[in-house]
Amino acid sequence: HMTFVALYDYVASGETDLSFKKGERLQIVNNTEGDWWLAHSLTTGRTGYISSNYVAPSD
Rank of each mutant, 00 (worst) to 15 (best):
L18M: 12
G45P: 00
W37R: 02
W37C: 05
T43A: 10
G34Q: 10
N31P: 10
L18S: 02
T32V: 10
V11Q: 11
K21A: 08
V5W: 04
L26H: 02
T16G: 14
V29T: 06
Y10T: 03
Y8S: 08
N30Q: 10
H40L: 14
N53A: 14
F4C: 07
T44A: 02
L42D: 04
T32A: 11
K22R: 09
T3A: 06
T44E: 01
H40N: 07
L18A: 04
H1P: 12
E15N: 10
H1G: 14
T44H: 02
G34T: 09
A12W: 02
T47S: 09
W37Y: 05
I50N: 00
L7I: 08
K22E: 05
D59Q: 11
K21L: 09
D17M: 14
N53T: 11
E15K: 11
N30G: 15
V5G: 00
S52A: 13
D35P: 08
V55T: 03
W36G: 05
D35S: 11
L42F: 07
T43V: 12
F4L: 07
P57S: 08
V29E: 06
M2R: 11
L42P: 07
T47H: 06
Y10A: 04
T43W: 06
V11F: 10
R25Y: 14
G34E: 08
D17I: 08
G48L: 01
V55I: 09
L38K: 03
K22T: 06
L26V: 04
S52P: 15
D35G: 11
G14W: 11
V55P: 03
L38W: 09
T43D: 15
I50Q: 00
N31R: 13
F4M: 10
Y10S: 05
A12H: 04
T3C: 13
S51A: 09
K21V: 10
L18N: 00
S58G: 10
G34C: 07
H1V: 12
N53G: 11
R25K: 13
H1M: 13
N30H: 09
K21S: 10
S51D: 14
D59T: 12
L26G: 04
N31T: 13
V5A: 02
T16W: 15
D17S: 08
S52T: 06
G14E: 12
T32W: 08
A6S: 05
Y10G: 02
G48C: 04
S52M: 12
Y54P: 02
E24G: 00
G14A: 14
R25D: 04
R46N: 08
W37G: 00
G45F: 04
H40I: 15
V55M: 06
A6Q: 01
H40S: 08
D35C: 11
L38T: 03
S58V: 15
S13W: 09
A56E: 11
S58T: 13
D17A: 09
G45D: 05
T47E: 07
I50L: 07
V55C: 07
G48E: 01
G45T: 02
L26E: 00
R46T: 05
R25P: 06
A56D: 06
L18E: 01
T44V: 01
S58I: 15
Q27G: 04
T32S: 13
D59L: 12
S41E: 01
Y54C: 15
Y10N: 05
R46D: 08
H40V: 15
N31E: 08
G23E: 01
P57T: 08
I28R: 06
E15V: 10
M2K: 12
G34P: 12
A12Y: 02
G45E: 04
Y49F: 11
G14M: 11
F20T: 02
A56H: 07
A56G: 11
V5S: 03
N30L: 10
L26D: 00
I50C: 02
T44Y: 02
D17Y: 15
R46W: 07
T32L: 11
A56Q: 12
Y10W: 06
T43M: 06
L7H: 02
A6E: 01
E33H: 12
R25S: 07
G45Q: 05
Y54Q: 09
A39F: 05
S13E: 12
A39C: 03
N30S: 14
T32R: 10
H40Q: 13
A12P: 04
L7V: 06
G34F: 06
Y54T: 06
D35Q: 10
G45I: 03
V5H: 04
N31M: 15
Y8Q: 10
G45S: 04
H1L: 12
Y54H: 11
G34A: 11
V29L: 15
P57E: 09
T16L: 13
Y49A: 03
I28S: 05
R46M: 12
D17K: 12
V5E: 07
G23C: 06
A39W: 02
G48K: 01
E15R: 07
L26A: 00
M2N: 11
T32G: 09
T43G: 05
N53S: 14
F4V: 14
S51G: 07
S13F: 10
E15L: 12
F4H: 06
I50T: 00
S41N: 12
L18W: 03
V55E: 02
F20M: 04
S58H: 12
K22A: 11
L26F: 15
T16I: 09
T32E: 09
W37K: 03
L38M: 07
T47R: 07
L18T: 03
D17G: 11
V55Y: 04
L38Q: 03
G14D: 09
G48Q: 01
S52Y: 07
N53I: 13
E15F: 08
G34V: 07
G34N: 08
N53Y: 14
T16D: 12
G23V: 01
G34W: 05
N31Y: 14
E24W: 08
T44C: 01
A12V: 04
D35F: 09
G48W: 04
N53K: 15
M2W: 10
G48H: 02
D59S: 12
Q27V: 15
H40C: 13
N30P: 05
S41Y: 04
Y10M: 05
F20N: 00
W37E: 00
Q27P: 00
G45R: 04
W36V: 12
N31H: 12
E15M: 09
T47Q: 08
S13A: 11
G23A: 03
L38H: 02
W37H: 03
K22H: 04
Y10V: 08
N30E: 10
Y8T: 08
Q27D: 06
D9Q: 01
Y10F: 09
P57H: 09
G34M: 07
G14H: 13
T16V: 09
W37F: 06
D17Q: 15
D9K: 00
E33F: 11
L18F: 07
A39M: 12
S19R: 03
L7D: 03
K22F: 04
E15P: 14
I28H: 01
D17W: 14
M2G: 10
D17P: 02
V11E: 14
W37N: 01
S58A: 14
I50A: 00
T43R: 07
Y54S: 13
V29G: 04
E15H: 10
H1C: 15
T47L: 08
S52L: 09
L18I: 07
L42H: 05
G23D: 04
K21C: 15
A12T: 04
K22D: 01
D9W: 07
L7W: 04
S41F: 02
G14Y: 12
Q27E: 11
L38N: 01
Y10R: 04
S19V: 04
A12E: 03
L42C: 12
A56L: 11
T16R: 14
S41W: 01
V29N: 04
F20Y: 07
D35N: 10
G23N: 04
M2S: 10
R25Q: 11
F4I: 05
S58D: 15
D9A: 03
V29H: 15
V5Y: 08
I28T: 03
D17L: 13
N31W: 13
S13Q: 14
V11M: 10
Q27A: 09
E15T: 12
T47D: 06
S51K: 15
A6I: 03
V5C: 07
S19H: 04
T47C: 12
G48Y: 04
A12G: 12
F4A: 05
Q27R: 14
T43K: 07
G45W: 02
T16E: 12
D9Y: 03
W37P: 01
W36P: 13
G34K: 11
Y8D: 08
T43H: 08
T47M: 10
Y49W: 14
I50G: 00
D9S: 05
T43C: 12
D35M: 08
T3G: 05
